[in-house]
Amino acid sequence: MDSLIGNTPLVKYAGEVPNGNAVCIKRECDNPFGSHYDRVYLALFREFEANRGLTAETPVMETSSGTAAVSFVGVGEALGFENFHVAIPQGIDSTISDLLGVPEGREMPKPDYLKDTVARIVEGKRATVYFTPEQDYVNGFPDFIKRFLPRNRDVAFLNHSMDRQRGGPAYANNETSLSALEGITREAQQQIPIGIYMPAVGNGSSVLGPARALSEESLIIPFESVQSAVLYDRLYPGRYQKRFGIEPGTLPKHKLRGTSYQGIDFPHIRSAVTQGIIDDVVLIGDRWLDAAYHQMTGKDETASLPHWDQEFPGCGEYGRSTRAGIAAALDVAKTCHGKNILVIAYDKADRYDKWPIIPK
């Protein structure tokens, strides 16, 4: 697997970029199972095998909003594992469910201890999938895990988004995940000097990990949906409410699957702020959030934000999070000159239902 994962292509955005800047796209979507999480799970499975007693016979568990689950199962199968448990929100794109073998699976009865935490359980072709309540999105995971793991002590929870602190119950950075993702910027820097790195804010791992491998001269400017503004609100307390007249998380759930969402206090995000590595945050909008914001406030403030739901030359195959990164980079390019701006191609369009959704 080492020769198949990583060393992904670095390509230039084909459209016009202001001020002599270049938007460079690291195609993590070309990894065997379609995302940067391939790097993470190759490292996590090996870490658990080497230091935590994991064997190919051990049942393994992960939580995911979608993309990570595909890499978790794909990498695990390639390494010889067979017994996968995945918690994902109900209502996830059917393309993700298909990749996990849900349509070919059979509905399982919900045990009493999970009845309030899952909408349904399906023993899929590739994994047993626990659908947490749709309205909770990723915020349904902590309660599920608290109930599931004590009754399934044979299951190893890889937990790519955080790790247990030694000697206590609190959670800390997942150093295995972060180290694996450093490869993204290490590889890119071998080809170009990186002036600005612009990752998505999800659980913070693709912000904090790759940032560690950058030179001190590189700026770190992540992006996230205006709906969530998790990192933005941490970096600029109170500014969101003054700017938009509402609190972060008030608008309906955004469509940038895998990016930040109000609720869970991810250590990677917290660390990125406390370590002072974040130079700014770009908020991303779309026409659905514009309409919801206008209906809620009578204002159009979100309409001035960069939007992912538009055409980008030569980018037809990219998914929403990748498009959001390009939109953010083009916005930042208006404010600087002669920089290489690095974004990640997190996914492809075929990972989403109802595509294309670009307005005509």
Rank of each mutant, 00 (worst) to 15 (best):
H36N: 03
D233F: 01
S260C: 04
I192K: 00
F266G: 13
S218Y: 02
K253S: 15
P237E: 13
A211H: 06
G15S: 07
T8E: 03
D136S: 15
S205T: 13
Y240V: 11
H254I: 10
R147M: 12
G34C: 05
L219P: 00
P89W: 13
P150F: 02
G183E: 11
V273K: 13
T335R: 15
F312A: 10
R46T: 03
I357F: 15
Y346F: 14
H307C: 08
Y113W: 10
V343H: 09
K12A: 14
L283F: 06
M296N: 09
V73Q: 05
D2H: 14
A156T: 09
R323H: 05
T335S: 15
E175H: 11
A200V: 07
D353F: 11
F244R: 11
L251V: 11
V86S: 01
P267L: 14
M296A: 12
V60R: 10
V11G: 04
N19C: 06
W308E: 05
L342G: 11
K334R: 14
R239I: 08
V73N: 05
L219Q: 10
W288Y: 15
G91L: 06
A188V: 12
M296F: 09
E134H: 07
S35M: 13
G15N: 09
N21F: 01
A156P: 05
F144D: 09
L208T: 04
Q165W: 00
I246D: 06
A56T: 15
D233E: 08
P210Y: 08
R153G: 12
E107W: 00
E82D: 07
R126P: 03
G53I: 01
G258D: 13
L10D: 13
G202K: 01
A345R: 02
A213C: 12
Y352D: 01
V281P: 08
S71Y: 00
G74Q: 06
K334W: 10
K334A: 13
